[in-house]
């Protein structure tokens, strides 16, 4: 160990100005490094949707097509199930990852330390968004690749469908991100975070047409699910990945793109407002 000597301003590196966009990019890189180094959690969150897709295809597929009474015939269950899995994956990556990781960062003092530096808060949030966008897109790419190779689900070719996919992805991820940040204050401690975050999300997946065909749910459950963003995200993804004729099979008989944009945007705005007003850099019992 060297004898410590350090004088104020003795030797400094001429560095580029610390602007919020530069810091945001630097934060995103740091977040991605941290995320991908938690190898166990990465493997499970990347494998989970793939395993679920495989499992449900085997259990419910059984050679018989889903919606065999649909005009023009039914489709393979894997193909029906894929959009729901994509929607669910987006919510898991954005909402679940952030709600849990922020609860931990608040408890272990990461946030408090950052608050004591001149780091602009917006750079912190943008860094999280950047991390979520990269992780989300890589999970979706992997899921689509597995669906195509193992289950023969062809991705759509029309640009219009991919445009729908793009706004669904962006609105869903952005909403999930801000809601995850807002929700991270709900768990009382980092220990309880997983249970408090994952529980409601599983219920939401069951009633939003992810694990079951949405049409099969009783209408009161459909109504409850329609309040939350996941149902709309799943529906938007179905409009991308199912044949056009399946629009008639939807409960409303339409893909309801207008309503989907409206409701996902409303959740995004609600989440943003809560984040800006209620975000805490310290534990409840600390300041």
């Amino acid at each position: 160990m060297t004898t410590p000597t350090l004088r104020s301003g003795e030797r400094r590196i001429a560095r580029r100005k610390a602007t919020p966009p530069r810091i945001a990019v630097s934060r995103a890189v740091l977040e991605l490094k941290s995320y991908f180094r938690e190898r166990d959690s990465v493997i499970f969150s990347f494998l989970f949707p793939i395993i679920m897709l495989g499992l449900f295809s085997v259990v419910f597929g059984g050679g018989e097509d889903t919606f065999s009474d649909a005009p023009g015939g039914g489709i393979d269950f894997a193909r029906y199930f894929l959009p729901g899995m994509l929607a669910s994956g987006i919510m898991l990556v954005s909402f679940q990852t952030l709600a849990i990781s922020l609860a931990i960062e608040r408890e272990d003092g990461t946030l408090k330390r950052l608050r004591g530096t001149p780091m602009p808060p917006v750079a912190y949030f943008l860094g999280k968004v950047g991390m979520i966008l990269v992780v989300g897109l890589s999970q979706i790419a992997l899921l689509l690749a597995v669906a195509a190779l193992a289950f023969g689900v062809e991705p759509p070719t029309e640009p219009a469908k991919w445009l729908t996919f793009a706004w669904c992805y962006v609105l869903g991820t952005a909403g999930g991100t801000v809601l995850g940040i807002a929700y991270s204050s709900v768990p009382r401690s980092a220990k309880s975070a997983s249970a408090v975050v994952v529980g409601p999300l599983i219920v939401l997946q069951f009633i939003s047409g992810v694990f079951f065909v949405f049409n099969d749910l009783p209408s009161w459950l459909q109504n409850i699910a329609s309040v939350f963003p996941l149902k709309w995200l799943a529906q938007g993804m179905r409009s991308v990945f199912l044949p056009d004729r399946f629009e008639q099979v939807e409960v409303s008989g339409s893909w309801q793109h207008g309503q989907t944009v409206l409701i996902l945007s409303l959740w995004l705005i609600v989440g943003l407002v809560i984040c800006v007003r209620r975000f805490r850099w310290q534990r409840r019992d600390d300041g």
Partner: peptide, 16 residues
């Protein structure tokens, strides 16, 4: 170090 307008040399700080 990227947060500060007038940061010290990070390597020098680590050594110190």
């Amino acid at each position: 170090a990227g947060y500060y307008p007038d940061a010290r040399d990070p390597d020098e700080v680590i050594a110190s």
